[in-house]
Nucleic acid binder design. Structure first.
Lengths: 339, 339
DNA sequence: TTGAAAGCGCTACCAT
DNA sequence: ATGGTAGCGCTTTCAA
């Protein structure tokens, strides 16, 4: 029951040396401070024996750094974010950092509150999928010398490091692919919000149409959480009222899932009657019959780059505006191919 | 650029009062300490004005509590765990706690290391999906007065709070359902490890067979990460070499996904030739054609109970062995129903 | 009704 | 080569 926390002081006393000496040895400065090997060995042995671990809290207070990075995403239970979380976590731990996470739910107020809470916790860095209207807060964070890296989307007019993917280009390519497959009436289903990545995807879609005879219909749905009733109904309605559509582009996978539901309900044959493409590949797109063509974001590289930028800022403090834009991969599958 | 951290001292100076006074007011002890309303108001106004937030690090050091809970699961990118993470997070934040997470990868060594790291961070509580061989560590955690709640599985012989579901009962019911549908040769696909929840599911399966004419074939695969080649091959092999199977129970959803892959490859008709049931319902099971029958765990209640137990231990310190076992829901869908 | 000061565990400057 | 000690920001006891 008694939780006797051994402190550096206890060690010093037990060994009859000073706190300073122990601290230096603990921090690998034995050589530098020219402490005798004998002493060093003695202290290290003792430390190992009693399994002493220094208190990070005290270190944090002293150093003004917490070695904690916050990972703020729209929704941590979303597969895409969860996968990145997993990879980031690994890299962070390897470098002695811990990750705290939270879901912003795309709610600017909530996000602001969270950021403020984290500030008082002395977190060292922020990895954020910014919500609309966060410019000011992010700018302030930067001014106050926090390490910040945005991802998935970025904030126009704020000079902050980010890692995103080639949304526009990939969307354009995928749309062109549909056109090459003979689609004449294209649908585009996206979320009703001004997140940059979604805008870019739509731009890509529209750009692909220029100079072609293909017609288009666009649906924007409010989408907060997965399986939201409202969105589901809207999508069904959209397809019912647009029987002419012979090709559809979903700007993200959860919309595609709802779309599939709707199309199944309407008895549409994929790809014979309607061909599909979605952004954000997913394990199930490959499992579904027919398998769904999708644009795959390079999860590993995103995570890799995020932590690279983060660590660089954290350790060196200089790099502030690294913009990284990664290419995606279009995975062609049966859902989009003309039979 | 300059990050001028306002401290309680600055406030005291600016207002010409003592640190103590400010601290009392900050902690809502103004009344108790009989500080004049005038003073209280003055301080509060100033605090609001400059947007001061106390340093949690310093508080932690002083109080010996960090208000941080660790959420250690097998794999945070797994949908089931990610969903629970999301819900827990919410409850934690509401109560002033933060969540740090990490993936154990079911690796006992890694888990032990992580726990040791967290101890030195003074985290207050642990929510853990225990790996095999963690008895000792958990017991020690309890002895040292940390708040601990296990979930998904528990550890036999350790008197620790946990939240799990009725694995055996639900598995039994689902198996009986298959038998009622006329299955005579049942397959059971599970992971090759001695996690209690998996054992219970298998027990339920076997119990359902007692006294019936149904025969069974069991496959145990090592499964670390999703989409692992090896597991995929094993499952395909299993189905090829057991053409007699007319019903299969998957002990968890990712095995079912691999199983579906295999069955599609083998051209088996579901449910005409083979009927399926899986543990752990998933969004995709409903979307798949035919929709897959699955046992749904009560995610919300699990999260709810986890945090309840955690907070109770954290705030009162007494409750140590609350065992909560929640019922599941069998979602009948086409994959298991005789046509 | 308010303030001084000890001390949580640690790092690092300055002595010796 | 080793030690004394200030101080990070806060809470809380004791004193005034």
């Amino acid at each position: 029951m008694a939780k006797k926390k051994t402190s550096i002081k206890d060690i010093a006393e037990a060994l009859g040396v000073s706190i300073t000496t122990v601290s230096f040895i603990l921090n690998g400065k034995a050589r530098e401070k020219r402490i005798s090997d004998e002493m060093t060995g003695k202290v290290q042995d003792y430390i190992k024996k009693i399994g002493y671990k220094p208190s990070h809290i005290a270190q944090s207070l002293r150093l003004g750094k917490s070695k904690i990075i916050v990972f703020m995403v729209e929704d941590i239970s979303n597969q895409f974010f969860a996968s990145i979380a997993r990879l980031i976590e690994e890299k962070a731990y390897k470098n002695g950092y811990k990750i705290i996470y939270c879901s912003t739910e795309n709610d600017t107020i909530k996000t602001k509150e969270l950021i403020s809470t984290f500030k008082m916790r002395n977190v060292d860095g922020f990895i954020i999928t910014p919500t609309p209207g966060l410019e000011h807060v992010v700018r302030k964070l930067l001014e106050e010398d926090f390490a910040v890296v945005l991802f998935d989307r970025w904030i126009p007019d704020v000079d902050c490091s980010y890692v995103v993917v080639e949304n526009k280009l990939s969307a354009k390519e995928a749309t062109q692919h549909l056109i090459h497959q003979g689609c004449k009436n294209l649908g585009f289903v996206t979320v009703d919000s001004s997140q940059t990545q979604m805008n870019d995807r739509m731009d890509g879609f529209l750009e692909a149409l220029i100079g072609t005879e293909a017609k288009s219909a666009i649906l924007k749905v409010k989408f907060h959480t997965i399986s939201e009733q409202e969105a589901s109904r809207k999508i069904l309605e959209f397809f019912s009222s647009h029987p002419e559509l012979d090709g559809v582009f979903f700007s993200t996978n959860y919309l595609a899932f709802e779309g599939l539901h709707a199309l199944i309900k309407l008895g549409k044959k994929i790809p014979e009657q309607i061909r599909l493409v979605s952004f954000d590949d997913h394990y199930f797109f490959n499992l579904f019959q027919p398998p769904i063509t999708a644009i795959e974001q390079p999860i590993e590289e995103i995570a890799e780059n995020l932590m690279d930028l983060m660590l660089k800022q954290l350790e060196h403090g200089e790099v502030q505006n690294n913009k990284i834009i990664l290419p995606n991969k279009l995975n062609l599958r049966e859902s989009s191919v003309y039979k």
